[in-house]
Write a protein that binds this DNA or RNA. Structure first.
Length: 222
DNA sequence: ACATTAAGTGATT
DNA sequence: AATCACTTAATGT
């Protein structure tokens, strides 16, 4: 490669190959390398605000991103997480015409994100069959995840939602000690601190978690 | 020692 | 399950 500007570092390139070599043809991977831009983020960086215009679609290389809905009072509700190879369905649905984000995205851990200009989306959709498959598949996966989230919201009580939330968080961070306060949890689940404190107490009595100040240890799950 | 912030609790809606 | 009002406990300055 003789280009003066190489937006890719070796690690990202390898990761991309690792993940997609059997999914994408080499020409497509080359295209991605040519037009994609990798950015690294610290934990807690805001990738997307509601109302922000989206010009690129994100593809997670390392780390994880949480996607949430937020109302005008700033109350938030967690929708789902993105991990390696995941892309955001909301972006996909908007890629045909320039539009604004309806969600907020924040990195859950330090992360490397690959950005692909939305113009390339359509181009690749017709040019690469594997890309088309990938996009449709991603859309499908997200759709199902959303349905799960709605189901959880509609039919499960707070205690179950809280427990699911803690489990997901442990899965995503691969860490059984979660550095989070009751207040933060309450916000993500769109509940109140008092309610979470009471339910956490309950979970603790059931032996599922051990509580400390500023963090919880999730004992057993699955 | 004091202020600040996280977590616990009883009562009320 | 949410909110209020208050207490208790941990932590930082």
């Amino acid at each position: 490669m003789t280009t003066t500007f190489t937006p890719f570092n070796v690690s990202c390139y390898n990761k991309l190959h690792e993940k997609f070599q059997f999914l994408f043809e080499p020409e497509l991977i080359n295209e991605i390398c040519k037009t994609g831009m990798v950015k690294t983020y610290k934990e807690g960086s805001v990738l997307m605000e509601i109302g922000q215009t989206l010009s690129h679609m994100p593809l997670v290389i390392t780390g994880s991103v949480k996607v949430m809905k937020e109302d005008k009072e700033g109350n938030e509700l967690l929708l789902y997480y993105l991990e390696l190879g995941d892309t955001c369905a909301v972006t996909l649905s908007c890629c045909t015409k320039p539009s604004k984000s309806t969600i907020k995205a924040i990195t859950e851990s330090d992360a490397e994100i690959l950005f692909i200009p939305v113009e390339k989306m359509e181009e690749w959709m017709v040019k690469f069959k594997t890309w088309r498959g990938f996009v449709l598949d991603s859309y499908n996966v997200r759709m199902n995840e959303m349905l799960d989230a709605i189901d959880n919201l509609a039919f499960n009580n707070m205690e179950e939602r809280l427990y699911k939330y803690l489990r997901d968080k442990v899965m995503i961070t691969k860490e059984s000690k979660l550095h989070i306060t009751h207040f933060q949890i309450a916000n993500e689940l769109h509940s109140s601190r008092v309610v979470i404190s009471r339910l956490m107490k309950k979970l603790e009595n059931e032996g599922l978690v051990i509580q400390h100040r500023n963090y919880v240890e999730v004992k057993e799950f699955m």
